[in-house]
Every structure is written in C-alpha cells, then in structure tokens.
C-alpha cells in the first residue's frame, strides 16, 4: 500500500538529471512550477507537456513507472478539477442545478487546473526521484544561507530536515512491521467504517511514536558522543559544485520561459 506512491521517493541512478546540482534542481523545479501558470492556449500546454516528457526521458526511468506512481494522486487532481467545473460561473451555461452549473468558463478553468496540476506533480516527482534526500537537504541549506544575516538558524534547520528525511524510510519500515504485528492480533486496517478504521490506527501510532522518540534519543546521544555542536561553522564532506550542465539547465528553462510567453500571445 505504502509502496505504490512514487512522490517523495528517490531512485538511485546516474542519469544527466541525477547528476545535476541539487541547488539548480530545486530552483529550476520551483521555477517550472511557477511558469506552469503562464499556460493559456493549447500551444502552451503542448509545449509544457513536451518539455516534461523530455525531462522524464532524461531521468532514464520507465514512463509507465511515472504513470503508475502518479495514479493514486489522479483522484485528488480529478476532484479539484470537478470542483472547479461545478462552481465556476461565467460564459455560456450548459447545465445548472441549484448552485451547481457547468459553464464554458468552468470547462476552461477546470481543464487548466487539471493540466497544470498534472505538470506540477510530475515535476515534483521528477525532482524527488532523481535527487537523494540528503542532497535536497544540502541544496536547501545552501539556498537558505543568505538568511544567516537575519540570524535564522540555517545549519540547525538543515540538520532537522536531513534527519527527518533520513528517518522517513526507517519509520515506514517500522510502521509496516507494527501493522503486521497488529494485523496478526486481529486488527483490520482496511475494513469497517470510519470510526473503526480510526480506532485501528491507535495500536499503530502509539508503538510508532514510542519507537521514534527512543530513536531520536539514541541519535542525540550518538551525535553528542561524537562531538556534534550545532552552531559552529561546520565544514562538509559533500561540497556542492556548479557544473556547466547546471548552467545549461538554467538556460534551457529560461528559453522555455521565453517561448512560453511568445506562444501565449499567438
């Protein structure tokens, strides 16, 4: 069940995208998400989907893996699009019932919402699939560094982020083990009404929290015994380096932006 979702998961690899600087990837993925809102006519959508198709090709991962990975989220997207469809007034009214209506503007906006949502989720998936969690944490730290001027605890925030990311798979494994143990004791996690299901979560969450707190305690002891002190200027083992490939990626996105702006006025 937990295994199917691809969003937030990293697959090790050596593709061109895997090797891009995490700072570049973070900024460019955000930039892509912003310009996804510049889409207006079908030409701009074709351009954006062609672009994301190319990006998926560059990850070296199979296309069907993306389709299946985004599958569980498609209902969220469809739900949002349907809300847009039913509640947007304006234009020609095709059908209405009480406050619900289907209008030409509604069809346009819901289509736009659906397609943009799809673009955004695919790009976010590409980012996490091709970037190791620790690299993301490094990237965030590097990007936040200017905030040190206003005494924002950048190093501690980055540490918190990397510890959290590091323990996601561990906690998922542990949740799976505890679920198995409680299922063996007769708990049904996927059966019954809402109340029954919520009650079934208690025997899962309590051991999970107890374990997580114990683990956090051990980790703190281990770090202190190796002399970790938060605030000092720490050197790092993984030094981020800007390569030509990163510059090329930036240029490509900027070109995409320009072409997009041109197309939307056609």
């Amino acid at each position: 069940m937990l295994e199917q979702l691809t969003l937030g998961r990293y697959i090790p690899g050596h593709s061109w995208l895997h090797r891009l600087d995490p700072r570049a990837k973070l900024v460019l993925a955000c930039y892509f998400i912003v310009i996804a809102f510049l889409t207006t006519n079908w030409l701009t959508y074709v351009l954006m989907f062609a672009f994301i198709g190319g990006v998926i090709f560059l990850t070296g991962l199979s296309f069907s893996y993306f389709v299946r990975g985004i599958g569980p989220l498609i209902w969220l997207i469809v739900f949002t699009a349907i809300l847009q469809l039913l509640f947007t007034p304006g234009g020609h009214i095709y059908w209405h019932w009480g406050i619900l209506m289907i209008t030409s503007t509604g069809i346009q906006t819901s289509t736009a919402v659906f397609l943009r949502f799809l673009l955004i989720i695919t790009m976010a998936t590409v980012l996490t699939l091709t970037t190791a969690p620790l690299a993301i944490a490094d990237g965030v730290e590097a990007l936040l560094r200017p905030l040190r001027v206003i005494h924002f605890p950048v190093a501690q925030t980055a540490l918190m982020l990397s510890v959290a990311l590091r323990f996601v798979p561990t906690l998922l494994d542990e949740a799976q083990t505890i679920m198995n143990a409680q299922r063996a004791r007769g708990v049904e996690f996927n059966n019954g009404g809402l109340i029954k299901r919520l009650r079934a979560i208690v025997p899962l969450l309590i051991p999970l929290f107890v374990g997580a707190i114990g683990r956090a305690d051990d980790l703190a002891t281990a770090m202190e015994s190796r002399g970790y002190q938060g605030a000092t200027n720490r050197t790092r083992y993984r030094v981020l380096k800007w390569h030509n490939a990163d510059t090329i990626a930036v240029v490509v996105i900027l070109v995409l932006n320009v072409v997009l702006v041109v197309l939307r006025h056609m």
Binding site: N180, A181, Q182, A184, G186, V202, P203, P207, V210, G211
Partner: peptide, 30 residues
Amino acid sequence: HQHVGMVFQFPENQLFDQTVERDIAFGPLN
C-alpha cells in the same frame, strides 16, 4: 490470523495499551 499466532522479532515493539492486562486481551477482543 487467529489460528496462526505470530511472534515477530522484538515483539515488545507492538505494545500500546494502558495496562499489561488490556494489551494481552487486545487480540482476543479483536
């Protein structure tokens, strides 16, 4: 599930209830 009892590795990680008695009775109640 009832007829095949499973004791997992480090089974103490599955304890959750407020008293020992209630934790042991959890399976039979289910």
